[in-house]
Each structure stands twice: as C-alpha cells, then as structure tokens.
Nucleic acid binder design. Sequence first.
DNA 1: GGCTGTTTGTAATGGCGACTTACAAACTAG
DNA 2: CTAGTTTGTAAGTCGCCATTACAAACAGCC
Lengths: 403, 403
Amino acid sequence: MTAVGRVGGSPANGPASQQDMRRRNLAVVLGTVAAHSPLSRADVAGRTGLTRAAVSSLVDELIARGTLTEAATAPAGRVGRPGRALVVSDRGPASLGLEIGVGHLAACVADLRGEPRVWRRVERANAGRPPAEVLAEAAALAAEAEAEAAVHGLSVMGRVLAVPGVVPNEPRGLVEHAPNLGWHAVRPADHWPDRDTVPDLENEANLGALAELWREEHTGVTFVHVSAEAGIGAALVVGGQLFRGTRGFAGELGHVTVHPEGRPCACGARGCLEQYAGVAAVLREAGLDGTGDAVVLLAERATAGDPATLGALEGAGQAMGLALASAVNLIDPDGLVLGGAYAELAAWLLPAIRTELAARVTVRPWEPEAVRASLLGRRGPVLGAALLTVRRLLADPTRLPAG
Amino acid sequence: MTAVGRVGGSPANGPASQQDMRRRNLAVVLGTVAAHSPLSRADVAGRTGLTRAAVSSLVDELIARGTLTEAATAPAGRVGRPGRALVVSDRGPASLGLEIGVGHLAACVADLRGEPRVWRRVERANAGRPPAEVLAEAAALAAEAEAEAAVHGLSVMGRVLAVPGVVPNEPRGLVEHAPNLGWHAVRPADHWPDRDTVPDLENEANLGALAELWREEHTGVTFVHVSAEAGIGAALVVGGQLFRGTRGFAGELGHVTVHPEGRPCACGARGCLEQYAGVAAVLREAGLDGTGDAVVLLAERATAGDPATLGALEGAGQAMGLALASAVNLIDPDGLVLGGAYAELAAWLLPAIRTELAARVTVRPWEPEAVRASLLGRRGPVLGAALLTVRRLLADPTRLPAG
DNA sequence: GGCTGTTTGTAATGGCGACTTACAAACTAG
DNA sequence: CTAGTTTGTAAGTCGCCATTACAAACAGCC
C-alpha cells in the first residue's frame, strides 16, 4: 500500500519531534478553515481544542505561507467583538492536474480551496502515437494552463499526470503498461521538456475515485469506484484513503471471474468480467462496431430504444452486479460508484446491477441506493490529479515557502 | 473501518499535544526494544534517531511503568563502557485471550514480550447451550488463568474474547449472530459475573489473522487469512492493520459467487463458495457424515488415500482458488494464508488452489508460494486475542499505571 | 598497574511549542 | 454613555527534546 491517498502528516513509525507537532497543528487549523470557512480564530480554537493563542500563532504562519487570507467581511450581528473571518486563499499556491486519454489531453489548475480555476482540453487521437510526442504536447498544454493561472495570481506547487494504464508502486514514475495508448514501460520524465515541471504519475481511475471522494468532505469513507475506458478498473477507497495494493495492482475488477468456464480473455484466464461488461464486449453484443466514441454511440442507441443495445447493456449490468457482489462481500464498503464511461451509461446499467447485488449480498444490510453514478463524469481524473496536490499541501503546509 | 487492527498511537485527526509526542516516543522506544532486544540505551538512540538523553528519560518512565527491565547480563567484549541491556519485562503487565468455540473453551495469558505463559483449554459442546452458561464457564476459566498468571508475577491489563460469529463495529460489545453456537444478539457483558473483567469482543477469524501477522514482525504487510469452522471467513490485513469493513462485515469469502447459477445457499443466493468448499459440503462430497471432529476425519481419510475424500478436497480447493483469484485481483495482497480448520487440510487443498490462482491471476506477478498454511493452527484465535492487548500496550504505554 | 582512548549514561542548559493568564480592542444591549 | 461579552495578542509557565559537558566503565597498550 503506497501513500497516494494517504496525504496525511507524519510517517508511520519513527520518533515524533516538536516540528512534527507544529506541522500537524498547522494542518489541523488549515483543514478546519478549509472545511468550515469562514471561521474566526476563536471559532477554530473552539472546534479544534487548541487555545486561541496557539491558533493565533498557527494562523500567522499559515498566512505567511500564503494559504490563509483574512476576508474583509464584517459578518457581525452577535454580541461581543467580531472575529476576523479567515478563508483559504484563492491566490498563491495552486496545483496542476494533467490527463492523457485515448482521445484527448486535459489540464486543470485548482486553487487551495479545491476550486478549478483553469480548464484546458484538446481532442487528440493519442493511441499509437510516439509517447514522446504525446508527452511534449501534454507539457505544452500544462505550460499554457500554468501561464493562465499566473494571471489569476496562482503559482503551481505540484503537478500530477493521470494516465489510463498501470502505474506500479515501485519503481515510481513509470507507466508499466497502457494498452489503450499502446505504451509499454514509458517514463514520462525521460521525455519531459523541462526538468522542473515533471509531474507525478497516477492511474486515471484512481484519481477519478479521489475526486469523487473529495467532492464532498467524507472522511473515513470506504467505497469502490468502477470505471472503464477499454478495460474495467476499480479504485478502492478505504477509510478515506486510496488503496493501491501491495504492488499497485489492486482493483482489477475487470479480471474477476464471472463465469468459471466462460469466454477466454486476453489475460489468459476464462470468464473475466471484461469479456461480458467491457465496452468492446457490449458493442459486440449490441451488434455495433467501434468507430467513433463508443460510449456516446451506445448512449444514443439506448436512448432510441434499440433492443439489441438495451439487451447488451442489461447483460453487462448483470455481469457487473455479479462481480461487484463479490467485491462487496469481501470489502464491505459504504457504497459503489460508477465512474468514467459507465457514468454516462448508468441509467441502463444500474437496474441489473442493483438486482444482482440484492440477490447476492444477503448477509449484511445493503441498500440499492448505495450504488450510484459519479457526478463528475469524464472530468473526474483531471480534477483528482489537481486535487491530489491540494490535499498534500493542506496536509502539510510546511511544504510551502515561508515568506 | 474500526480500530481493532489499528493499535497505533494518536487518533486520525485533532491537534497534537506534547503528551502525544511523549506517548509516541515511549511507544517507539518500547517497540524498538521489543523488536531487537537486548539493546542498550545508546543502541536505542542509534536506531530511533532520538538522543541518548531523551532515550534515558523515556526508558526511566518505561521501567517505572513495568514494561522494561534492565537485564543483569554483561555482554561486553567491545571497547568502551558496556551498555546496560534492556529487555521487555516478563513480569508485570500481561494480557488475557479467551475463546469460545463450538467444541471448546480456551484461555491464554501472554506477557508483554508476546510469549504465552499460561494455557487453558477444556472441551465443551457449546452449540445450543444457553449463552449465560457458556459465558459463566468462560469467565471461570479466565479467572483460573489469571490466578495462575499471578503466580508468575503477571497482572492482566486487558481481556479479549474470540467468538465464532459476527461482531459488528457498532454497537460494540455485541455478538450479532453466531450460527454455530446458536447465538443471536448476545451481549457477553450482560452475563459476565464480574464487571471489572468484562472482555472486549472480536471475531475469531480476525484474531487468527492478527496472530499470524504478529508471529513475526511484518509491518506494512497485506494479506488475506482464510479460515473455516462451519462457514468460510476471510480476514483482511491491510498494511499491517486488520480491515473490518464499514460495518464489520468485510471478508465474507464464503459468499463470494463461484458458480452464478449453482447450488442454492442458505444465505438466499446461489453458487456461494461455502456450498463448494465449506466443511459440510466437503463431507457430503466425500460421502461422510459429520459426527465427531469433521476436520480430523477428513484428514485421516485423505491420509489413507480415500479417493472420494481426495476428490472432494480437490474440488473444494478449485472452488477456493476461484474465489481467492477474485480476491487477489481486487486487493493485490502479498500473500494468502490458510488458517483454522483449513490449515490442517492444506496439504490436499493447496495444489488445486495454486493451479487455479496461477490460471486466473495473470495481470500481475503471482507466485504459488504466496499461498501457505498457517503455522499456528487452531491456537491462532486465542493467541491473537491475547496479543491484541499486548500490541495496544506496546503502542501506548501510558495506559499502564506509572508507579 | 597505570595510562589512553572509547563508549555509556546522566545532569545542566537551551530552544521550541502549546497552555495559562491578563488585557486592550471592538462590538451589542440597554 | 455604560455594562457586558467576545476577540485577538502579549507575557509568563510548563513539558519535552536537543545540545553540551562530564563522570563512569570498559579494552588495549606500555
């Protein structure tokens, strides 16, 4: 398990120092303001249990680091001296999210409040192109986005790139395999034009799940986020943290067995979910071919009431329900979220998924509403990529320069 | 996710105080000695990064709390003043593990080193007996064990009871359902004779997994621990911590689907693993009936080479391999451990399990040796129950009285 | 044996960070 | 305008670890 979702403070073991204490309390104050702003120093003290004096000192440092600002508002009305409103700064430190998809490049700059301030998206057929070329374009897009952000007074402190492929825990910075792009063992750092802006790497499904997690403040939440582009991936969020597995391969829902003696899969096994609920399988079942945007095509056909398409989607939903039931029995999550391409097809997938889950998850309370579609849709991964750095900065404000 | 496996220091959020720092450093020093004893104060300083002066102060307090002792040895030989050897005390604070099984009661007192010092086990047919009666006997056994421990100078600081049933996260202290005992909604505290010795509750499979985890010091390890008494349960250890799921129902491996349209299960679904690899199913397949100790019977027949038994076990192994492949694809653990009854049948189950895993886990490196049998066998749960308190004390020595 | 060099454990001092106490500032209520 | 309330900050205290200094306890060497 690696620490992508674990954006929090100090390392697991090793002694604690006074600096660790300070770091943690800075994060506590900043996090409290981020979650409940506007708040006065006294409010923060009341909520956290720190004393007003300590909060004052911590807030001074947070302001000096550019993370907090005193709002000029006068929201009085109660008796006593009115507090000065603190808000998370919408200028200064910011973060960049990038995405390389099969059909597009995207960039997003978010401020410390988590608000996206700059969006960039260009359509590009990236499949099969030389990685160096794609990465150069991504870097150019990133530079553009950062330049626009600078106009708003935002300076990017961290960069994360979302890729539709396997990103192992070790070694870091490697895309081991991205089948839809045709990438094998690509190190983006080797092709990046500027040493100083090389992004961190993360799987797009994982980032989509994190975006969903952070959409509203759910702490301690556990859910499974299913998404698909060509394969089917699931991201596991456990206790509010992304769970990547020992090697970074957790969440391979697409290769969970749904029919032990079923169709052979490209992975070498038989009866994998991907063969029944993957986009390619659904297209085949619906009698369509894969030119253009397959998901849009399926949604159109289904809306039009095409029986073959509706049947194919129902079959896919059944298979997914079967695999998800096993996941629920193993993991006992709060809920399941359909993201990525499936979010747009959720209307036709959900009934069968819910039926199957109801039939197969029996030893615990389970409500059909616990399965829902993501509200972020295709923007999830970029947004998650941007928010990852934001969360890291909120969790450790000492990463920011003091002056 | 609740904090049974999470024995470590400070809460997830909230401000840090100097006492937290002290608590943590006490745990760091104690943990270092526990892992590498004997160690001098200077050794501890070298390993932890704390200064010798700080270690001295911390060690003084740990000695005052009865957790550390200065060994009288003189292991010199190197130049310079010899250090005084520190070891974890084998007297003083200790912990009690209890187990209520279908056919027995067990108790174990362990010292702070994790060494079991007192064992008690009595055979009892507990199925169907009134819970109050069983609990009274368990309490008596506990009192006996504590009395014997007192002779060794051990005083029990915490008690944990292992039960073969579902123990929800909320409300705590409740056995919601223990089918093999015939228990429903039993609160052991209501029947315990002495208010002061009421034990904490935990599922026996979870405790077996924790015992396996702590057998040797694996920190950060992630594995799935499969065990069976009548049903099939799996305990998930994630990053060195027990994962119980949102409601405490994680690890229901027995109800993972292995044949979508297969045999109906008591849970209401079809084709659950339990119907193919549960002890009852194996007995039926082997043409045996369930009088006496089913596991011993199966092992005898298999050793004797009975073809029906061997076939039944192979079939069970196949089904388990199928379900475990899905678990591996979802969770990406370091390894799988067969515990409980399955540990004694591992010789006949493992080949089929490994074959099936090799065929179905293909998208990541996976070695057959990553599946192994538990070395603790049936003593795992009691030992885990005792060690749980030990780990809690090691993680927070301030729980112990100072004088 | 006596001297030197090395390592250990502890005492004294300092720095850092949160807590306590005290107080001026800024508002509402009357 | 006064009394009461709440806020933010300054001064002092306390707890804890780091630094420095030093006595104690050994091996090696003469």
